[in-house]
Write a protein that binds this DNA or RNA. Structure first.
Lengths: 229, 229
DNA sequence: CGAATATCGATTATCGATAATTTATTATTT
DNA sequence: AAATAATAAATTATCGATAATCGATATTCG
């Protein structure tokens, strides 16, 4: 099957995977939505095999869930699970910061530029760009830890978290964390990984604490532009 | 592979998955060994689909690796990666211990019985049983943390580590850690999660330190009985 | 009427065959 | 003989079709 005007260097199942995850991420397929293999296959003019493979990979990464002979649907993450995820992320980043202290000492320019970019986006009200830069900021710290397994876990967590919801909290007070991020950078500049770690942990556990079941309604699908500027 | 006698209680792809992982775990398929889809399918009297699906799941859990059109082979874990894995495991268990402090206070009987069982196995020279009970001991702590994501990560790590190698170190001095495990239990009995966490962390980082590339030859495949009983 | 069961439509799980791609082998040229 | 091109072999990726299973509805029997 020849690609219609696009990049042909990707397997069909991979393209299907991207296609589906895109739709889950931007809210077209809400949690609980059913994903029928042959239906998607027909829609994408391919066969059942690649679609099935894509769904199984998405299942492995936590985006969807499936039961034998019952089918696959977009996974619904509970408030409880979100709390757990933020807790795990909190101490992953704390440890990463301690491990990354040496690598980041007097080497914070990349971190700084992400914060600057995030700040600019926040002022323009571009939540999506803001969130992206803030995410890269945190990921760079885990990357600098030099522990690839830690990074893999962090990625898995991030995928799971961002796939479903973004805390409305994060949207409505984007400038709140600015000072904190600067403090984290300063700590790294001084080679104080312990401090950076404590700050990160506190920051993230703060998010975790804002999550409870009563807030479930205030979550918003990732990628959807909030109409309330 | 037979199913004639009754209702097939497990899908074919799941049985294939078990069949393959069993062979990887017991060393029949060593790291680097190539896994050809149609060849396995023929050997198990099934078709390519289920085998392919099984291999993809094993890839997701880190047991094998594959490249497009090149095929799948048993993954080789480097000394470096083993170190990283033990580091991550160390601080996962440290945090789990702190979270589990409340749940385990005056509630250590299950932990205790695992240690007793491990001790008995060690005296009989039954390394496999010893290792299994020691693993359950550690897993129970993570379970008691109440954080299911933490547990999922720990399981993934364990699968990855145990799938490939067991530190010969652990085999030759099984009684070494006995006192430490008792100390951990005592800490939990007193509700001192911080202390239990520190002990666990130190214990595991100790293992991590014994790993370096010069020791690579001393690793032994999991499941293989050492002839030097 | 109501519980157990047979049937139907929808969907997943599996199969056998074909196309696409890589790797190995042979032929050709310089 | 070395390098390159052409061909063949092996294997993965994909396809279209069939079998197995589930859920809902209709049907039978007490």
């Amino acid at each position: 099957m020849e690609q219609e005007g696009g990049i042909p260097r990707d397997s069909i199942s991979n393209r299907v995977k991207k296609w589906i995850s895109e739709r889950i991420l931007n809210g077209t397929y809400p949690p609980g939505h059913r994903l029928v293999e042959l239906q998607i296959a027909h829609e994408l003019k391919t066969s059942q095999g690649p679609v099935r493979e894509a769904l199984r990979e998405l299942e492995a990464s936590g985006l969807v869930e499936s039961e034998p002979f019952k089918g696959t649907r977009v996974r619904q993450v509970s408030a409880r699970e979100m709390q757990e995820a933020y807790q795990v992320r909190a101490f992953i980043e704390q440890h990463a910061a301690e491990l990354a202290a040496f690598a980041l000492r007097d080497n914070t320019s990349r971190l700084q530029s992400e914060i600057v970019a995030a700040h600019e986006a926040a002022e323009k009200g571009d939540i999506e760009t803001f969130t992206r830069h803030k995410t890269v900021f945190h990921r760079q710290i885990v990357e600098a830890s030099g522990n690839s397994i830690l990074l893999r876990f962090w990625d898995a967590l991030q995928f799971e978290i961002r796939s479903q919801v973004i805390l409305s909290q994060e949207k409505f007070s984007p400038l709140e964390g600015e000072k904190l991020h600067q403090a984290i950078i300063d700590a790294f500049r001084n080679g104080n990984g312990k401090l950076a770690g404590r700050l990160l942990r506190k920051h993230l556990l703060g998010f975790a604490d804002t999550i409870d079941s009563t807030h479930e309604a205030s979550w918003v699908h990732a990628g959807r532009k909030s109409s309330t500027g």
